[in-house]
Design a protein around this nucleic acid. Structure first.
Length: 304
DNA sequence: AACCTGATCACTAGGCCTCG
DNA sequence: CGAGGCCTAGTGATCAGGTT
């Protein structure tokens, strides 16, 4: 299971990078007068109200991970209460579950709920450890993987398909056997398995393992998301290259966060770390830095 | 505001211990 | 004896507070 490739949905990557509104052609965030789309606004507001009143309703506490356009408009204080940034463990767990859902589908072990575009499958935690690249590893790491997995139960995302919007889980996890806590039932949204209806690209099955190997120290979620974007770009390109402006790289890796935290000098090393990791993964062959017509930095990336 | 510094967090790597 | 788990040092990311 450490060789080969699996399919990854473009829509899912857009959700992870907060671009589901940016990339959607059917649903405009702003109308022509520059006002927020009332349908999106009311769904988001309802969810925010739910989160703020969760103690009264007795539900489990949860958080929402918002599209960039909405996050920019909300006050920082409110964001702190209702949202959590995507973590590198979360990025890796989502990647692993996409792969595992596909393996389950191939074995006819995926159970569909067509009407709601969801499915579930059963898995043993050991399979997840393998896909996370911590198969032969220590207890502490396994604990972190488990925490990241069950953490998905507390995260909701803005899901947009064509012109419809919902705010819901991507993944839900339940124990199914009282005697065996390692046996889990995983419910996933359509972007994890419904590739007849989704556009997609490919990822290597051992991606998490390789990333662990090449990227030491504390992992950076945005760098790892950028790597997925590069795999996507490779799938789309016709001449085996892609050109990213500095601004695109800046946006994809959400480097504004570093500026906000006055970590200005970490920006360049972060970009270089991402490019370096892409090279080590045998994804990218070379990167040439140039200037566009406006004199702004751009990167010509040649894939392997 | 820009910059610096130290604390804390989230890992990796590797040595060591334990128990079958 | 050896696989798995525990412990700790090292590293990079992040953050908070202080200084210029």
């Amino acid at each position: 299971m450490t060789t080969g490739k699996f399919i990854y949905s473009n829509r899912l990557l857009n959700i992870e990078t907060g671009q589901q509104l940016t990339k959607n052609k059917h649903l405009n965030f702003l109308n022509k007068d520059g006002e927020m789309n009332p349908m999106i606004l009311s769904k988001v507001n309802n969810t925010i109200d739910d989160i703020l009143h969760v103690e009264q309703t007795g539900q489990e506490k949860f958080y929402i991970y918002l599209p960039n356009e909405i996050e920019e408009k909300l006050p920082k204080q409110l964001l702190k209460q209702i949202s959590k940034d995507i973590t590198s463990s979360e990025v890796r767990v989502i990647t692993a579950i996409v792969a595992l859902a596909q393996f389950a589908k191939a074995k006819n072990e995926l159970v569909y709920f067509d009407q709601i575009n969801r499915a579930y499958f059963e898995l043993d935690l050991s399979e997840l450890y393998q896909m996370m690249g911590v198969g032969n590893s220590k207890g502490k790491l396994r604990t972190l993987v488990k925490e990241a997995l069950f953490g998905l139960n507390q995260k909701k995302y803005v899901l947009i398909k064509n012109s419809s919007i919902s705010i819901s889980h991507l993944v839900q996890v339940h124990e199914v056997d009282g005697k065996n806590p390692n046996k889990l039932k995983i419910t996933v949204e359509g972007c994890f398995f419904n590739f007849e209806k989704e556009s997609y690209f490919h990822l290597p099955a051992d991606i998490n393992k390789k990333i662990r190997k090449f990227s030491t120290g504390r992992p950076n979620a945005q760098v790892e998301l950028f790597i997925k974007c590069l795999y996507q770009a490779k799938h789309c390109t016709k001449n085996n290259t892609v050109e990213y402006s500095y601004d695109t790289v800046f946006k994809l890796m959400k480097l504004q966060k570093l500026v906000d935290n006055k970590n200005h000098k970490h920006i360049q090393p972060t970009i270089e770390k991402a490019f370096d990791l892409a090279k080590k993964l045998d994804l990218v062959k070379s990167i040439k830095e140039g200037k566009d017509r406006m004199g702004k930095v751009k990167y010509n990336i040649e894939f392997c």
